[in-house]
Amino acid sequence: MSGNGKAPMVAVEGVKKVYRRDAEEVKVLDGLSLEVPEGDFVALMGPSGSGKTTLLNLIAGIDRPTAGKVIVAGTDVAQLGESELARWRSRNVGFIFQFYNLIPVLTAEENVALPLLLTNLSKKERRERALTALKVVGLAERSQHYPRQLSGGQEQRVAIARAIVADPKVLVADEPTGDLDSKSAEEILALMETLNRDFGKTIVMVTHDPRAAQRAHTQHHLEKGVLSL
């Protein structure tokens, strides 16, 4: 339980993650535990290979722990089957990548509406929601532009709109400012603060950038798969 008596939005309990490379076992996370209360904005920092992205992937439900529990929004994600996990991700997690990863053949609006294809919404409703999400990130007027017609910062804002369009409880961001200049990075961080403050999104962000980490409420440092405050 978190301090306010409510169940945490993210609870990682004694998680181990081991990768196999040929005959060798590489221990990435070693009995790590972490709680993120609902509405928190957490930054995960640490050197390369410390296990930040692995932890983020476990929280996002795109990887499974070797041992331990990962409970997000009340669901033990490790217990879900492949297709259940995919459905769960579409409803509960918004993922923001370092390199935006927009689909180049789709317009900004179509990219944002992509997760809504998995819902029962009509085409009109999907379009309305995508435009609303683009308005939130300040790019409604660029809705018909293709990724190649947008700057890096704009692409990342479209990616954030895609992450929030299905109204997930948790946003996970893997170095969201890592590929941006300082001005664009500042805009993205401000936007994430807004999403956290005004829309109550719980955010877990991996970053190398100390200035970015300072925008989070809580900072965690990982060193060789172990957490240190």
Partner: peptide
């Protein structure tokens, strides 16, 4: 390949 990974991350099932 990246796009396929992104689709799966967004919740598109493998099927």
């Amino acid at each position: 390949r990246t796009e396929i990974a992104v689709l799966k991350t967004l919740g598109f099932g493998s099927g």
